[in-house]
Design a protein around this nucleic acid. Structure first.
Lengths: 223, 223
DNA sequence: TTTCGATGCAAGCGCTGCTTACATCCGCAT
DNA sequence: ATGCGGATGTAAGCAGCGCTTGCATCGAAA
């Protein structure tokens, strides 16, 4: 795909047909997002970088939103994979560890790929509801969190009034931290750039402390 | 201002000068945001609604971002006022109540004014750093939260490892819930539309429970 | 080999943010 | 009262955008 594109470009010859324009456009869009944020992505510029006319993309993506949605789908799949890796890595471990691993994996991915996360949550730029992939991946993520929390309760480690609110709190905490990270609320919050993940772990520990009824675990886990 | 505009419009006569274009443009922008989100705001359309030529706004706002920033400043001031009202109302009450009042006031304002909140946090559409007003109001908000948490600790009600992380957790929780609300994560989260505030209170209670080392307050406070 | 659908191009429509040159008005010093 | 200058409006226009249309080109199936 990309090889083929670069090959033709290197040869100086331009075939009439691109070869794999769809993938090339997504790649170009990703790079544009990296450079100037999701809002700055332009179908024309993506086409330009793929070495193709301004009308060509619309054969593959009926609209700019469709292009951005494709980018979001890729990003979401990667985020999900990261979280699932953390969960299989800690399979069998105690729910507290697994819960923390979940939050850390999620947050760390966002921290390392802020622009990609921005696309996922830029719901005015993508058609979230219209994408089966996005909805499915999101649901899988939610179910995974539910499982971890439920596991903790079954084993008598977490004590929360009801599953629903624990779930919501956990989600709000992780999502909130992630958003604060990509929205750059951390600078004015005197959290050193490098320490965002550390801060996140601290905060999550505090939350788990709440679930386990404050046995001071957070203080012990601090290092 | 608006009266004067409507007066001239009603009279059918159009004066050369508008009278209060600046305010009229902000008002028009707010209405546009209400209708189609912050991204859909157009300087030209705002000018159109103010009954003025497409170049006129640039006498008052050098760019679209400047216009949006003005809107954000208004919104932020209102949010801050709402929170401060809740804090003065509960002045003298115990920190747990005040803490909950803070979170509720913040969240409920966002819930009632989702579009305005979207502008505040749409940092790619506004010049947050460049606005003294925005930075000051934001700082006041942060300081208010710090005060409440510190008060709770002084009176021996909250027990958290350190101020910094409690503060961060609280902010992440409220901000996360607010974002989930405006990003419409609640529909797929089986939180009934009307119950968002209730869910928020439940979650915040859970958090305060964590701070007070789980004496079951959340369960009692539930009604 | 022919044909036909998929995929590309060129041109263009209406919109955008923003600039420039000019018109109009209000308030203030005379 | 007058007339002048700065503030505030208009009209026209630039480049860039998303998206559409009509036509050119190609590769693979018949």
């Amino acid at each position: 795909m990309a090889t083929r594109v670069r090959a033709t470009a290197a040869r100086g010859r331009t075939r009439y047909h691109h070869g794999n324009l769809r993938a090339a456009l997504i790649e170009a869009a990703e790079r544009l997002i990296e450079e100037g944020g999701p809002e700055s992505v332009t179908v024309r510029e993506a086409a330009r970088r793929a070495g193709v006319s301004s009308g060509a993309p619309f054969r593959h993506f009926p609209s700019r939103i469709a292009l951005m949605t494709a980018v979001a789908e890729q990003a979401m799949t990667r985020l999900l994979a990261e979280v699932e890796r953390a969960l299989t890595r800690t399979a069998g471990a105690d729910p507290v560890t697994r819960c923390a691993a979940f939050g850390e994996a999620y947050f760390r991915w966002v921290e390392r790929n802020p622009t990609q996360f921005r696309v996922i949550s830029a719901r005015n730029l993508i058609d979230f509801e219209g994408s089966k992939t996005l909805r499915r991946d999101n649901e899988v993520l939610r179910a995974a969190m539910t499982d971890v929390l439920e596991e903790g309760r079954r084993k008598g480690l977490f004590h929360y009034p009801d599953m629903h609110r624990a779930q919501l709190a956990a989600r709000a905490l992780v999502y909130g931290l992630a958003r604060m990270c990509v929205d750059e609320h951390f600078a004015q919050w005197d959290v050193p750039a490098k320490g965002a993940a550390r801060a996140m772990r601290d905060v999550f520990d505090l939350f788990i402390d709440g679930l386990t009824h404050g046995k001071g675990r957070a203080a012990r886990r601090r290092r």
